[in-house]
Design a protein around this nucleic acid. Sequence first.
DNA 1: TAAATAGTGTCTATGAGACATTATGTA
DNA 2: TACATAATGTCTCATAGACACTATTTA
Lengths: 246, 246
Amino acid sequence: MSAHEESTFLEEYDPTRYPRPSVTVDLVILTVRDAHLKVLLVQRKEHPYRHGWALPGGFVRVKEDPLDQGESLLDAAHRELAEETGLPLGAAFLEQLYTFGKPGRDPRTRVISVAWYALIQPELAPLVTAGSDAAHVAWYCVSQMPAELAFDHQLIVNTAIERIRGKIDYAPIAFNLVPETFTVAELRAAYGAVKGQPYDAGNFRRRFLRMLEDGLVEQAPGLRHVARKPSTVYRFVTPARVGEPG
Amino acid sequence: MSAHEESTFLEEYDPTRYPRPSVTVDLVILTVRDAHLKVLLVQRKEHPYRHGWALPGGFVRVKEDPLDQGESLLDAAHRELAEETGLPLGAAFLEQLYTFGKPGRDPRTRVISVAWYALIQPELAPLVTAGSDAAHVAWYCVSQMPAELAFDHQLIVNTAIERIRGKIDYAPIAFNLVPETFTVAELRAAYGAVKGQPYDAGNFRRRFLRMLEDGLVEQAPGLRHVARKPSTVYRFVTPARVGEPG
DNA sequence: TAAATAGTGTCTATGAGACATTATGTA
DNA sequence: TACATAATGTCTCATAGACACTATTTA
């Protein structure tokens, strides 16, 4: 049987007769506090990796009914995000990251995980723990995480950090890591937290002024009084993008 | 039952008791010929979308045995690539694109597709058809594809094109779209094919000289005699990267 | 020798990085 | 008034884009 005949052969058969993997969504939920990038971890209550720290996540809800095949991957990610954080649906920037499916990554059965990352505004971050009192959840500095995360979750976190570090320079994702209204210094701190090193104040302001000219941000009423001299506050104009290709 | 209790509840149960989706890999196999970006499509022989054009792909091979859970997603993509093109394993640049899982995208059952894109050197592209004589396969210009592709494959193709258009400016992926040794003009044509518009010859050469200085490319022996004046040929130094995060 | 492409050079605009300087409101 | 931070300005360097120009080999 040639290679091609074999692939055709597979298609002719009812796929339900072949073993299927479990599919989960795992979430790398990030925020910025005190100029540090933090990730939300949950402590597992069951084996495997009992008491170990892991990313929040869960199974994608699938149905056999051809007319209702269950929830989409994006819906599953949104649902898990709401369930694990207690935050309302759509409160965060959410984007698909990568799909991890190495055999053996879950010792129980074959599990393929569609990983997503979410960016949470620092105002909302403190509310997270309250929403899920039953389990241990905690914000960890990405540079001070537990030595070993469950499954391949350390790899997933690293992949997420790599992604946003690359993306922050050309996409307006940092606005999901500052309050609704923010100062230039606050936005600069968010950029620095993501990059892992501070930005020059002067150069960053120049870059910010271009955003102003481009209509990406606008001045907001009032002033922020944290330093000796109060600073202008701004807000993001374009709504946070949440979605999938197409 | 709170939202969080529910997600814990799910984890406590044997996941095999819940419906699982089928998982496939779909491939956007691209090459450049005559300064045009081409995608490999296969004509389906079975319903649904019988006789319709689709991306090559197939089911990920999963096993129940905890000690052998089947092939990885990357392996599945490599295997499908070899099966559908007849090319040897590892002959192409292969990278994960995005995972598509909208309910209803396959009318038969819930199918989640991990999409990959592959870049094939133009030397190898003509060999592809020969390897799979049983089915119709064809290279289509991405701007002249059949009006309707099967499933959501048009969306997948568009996502792939968008990805490489963005990536070609900062990652050395174009070397997978030219022959082993190439002229500056050939590389420029590959860039132009991906971008959908030609690059300025002078500016591109300057950019190319930086690649030379950086040691990314080196001169190769011989000359290419296609024009009146023969041109220097070069080759890529760093081997093509094929892999996954971690 | 003419044609066609290889290859070089120039001018300008833009943005990043490093760093100095001024301005301002509050303790 | 002193101080800390806001806000502005300056210099240099790297790169992109547009485009003019020269060089070389073969038909």
